[in-house]
Design a protein around this nucleic acid. Sequence first.
DNA 1: ATTATCTATAGATCTATAGATAATGC
DNA 2: ATTATCTATAGATCTATAGATAATGC
Lengths: 204, 204
Amino acid sequence: MKPKDTEGEILRAAEQEFMLKGFDGAKTASIARAAGVTHAMLHYYFRTKEQLFDRILTDKMSLMGRSVLTAFGDSRLPLLERLKEGISRHFDFLMENPDLPRFVVNEVFSRPERYEVMRESISRLANSLMQGIQCELDALAEQGEIVAIDVRVLMLDIISLNVFPFIAYPVIEPVFGSLAADRQQFFEMRKAENIEVIMCRIKK
Amino acid sequence: MKPKDTEGEILRAAEQEFMLKGFDGAKTASIARAAGVTHAMLHYYFRTKEQLFDRILTDKMSLMGRSVLTAFGDSRLPLLERLKEGISRHFDFLMENPDLPRFVVNEVFSRPERYEVMRESISRLANSLMQGIQCELDALAEQGEIVAIDVRVLMLDIISLNVFPFIAYPVIEPVFGSLAADRQQFFEMRKAENIEVIMCRIKK
DNA sequence: ATTATCTATAGATCTATAGATAATGC
DNA sequence: ATTATCTATAGATCTATAGATAATGC
């Protein structure tokens, strides 16, 4: 017999509903139904819709932040490899979580105060990652291997290229979908292109 | 005396409310209040919230589509200039309409059927624009001035780089805001960087 | 006569909770 | 004894409309 995990079921259902419809579009009744529990259970475990939502959003923001750190965090590789690997791993993460960036970006936009608590820790982690990369960029530039560039500029190039196609897929598909046979292949092509773009940007 | 334009006031207020909060977050009562009219007027002029919304969304989708065409449409310029000018004009358009892409992308995602009617015409216009650019790309590549590239790949690079910072600004600001003194300057820097990236991508 | 506007309210939907009942762990 | 669950419903909010009234254009 399965010892049913009501709280877990609610979280799973809530994640799905909130990611798909956002806070305003999500209905607690719909979450309860998907979780296979009665409506009152949401309030028993999470008090309010807002608190349940905060739990999901916090998880997702943290996941999105970590994805960048782990993708680019391997400091054993030589810089160019580290960047290529980073782009590739970050892109793979997005293929596993295609709706994540839109969800986070939207909810932060519609209620910025939700982001306040994370601002500082996010900023600190990102800076520490980028500081290491900046050193290596500077070293290679010194040797004349690459052009000099601010790591923040470069990282924003990378993230723009990687994330945008996922956020905008439904809108761009009619125009750019013809590039590939299917969605999967389309994204594989983008991954390769993004690496190419970034290498062109920094190589001399 | 101003001959009051109720319908126009409602449209203005609705645009603001929908762009800021999305369809689900927007309230007809709030739109009416902002328009300075009674609530029943919305229904008198537009029947339903849905119809009022469709009017706004259609306008915005069309505006976003046209922005790309007009930015890159100047076929008198030599190709590299045309691309630089295109990136720059498209970026300027986004600076004037920073919330537009997020709005469109979101609403299309949450109810894809809203996009169906435009899919074909959008795709046709885009293809005709890109066909012209592809010819010039091929010619320059033939001459060995640039590398060979599919215009769709290149345009998606451009649009990703240009649009993403606007969509994600509230999320990326804590990390990348330190690049510039203020928001305005931040975006000016991005515009220059995006041109640089694209030139690096195609130049030999 | 037609068009525009207002007041009042119906009707639907949604979140939240009260209070009773069943299950669980000492 | 405490924790989990259910039923029933309160209370708030939101969209939409009916019906009366005022303004406008022939």
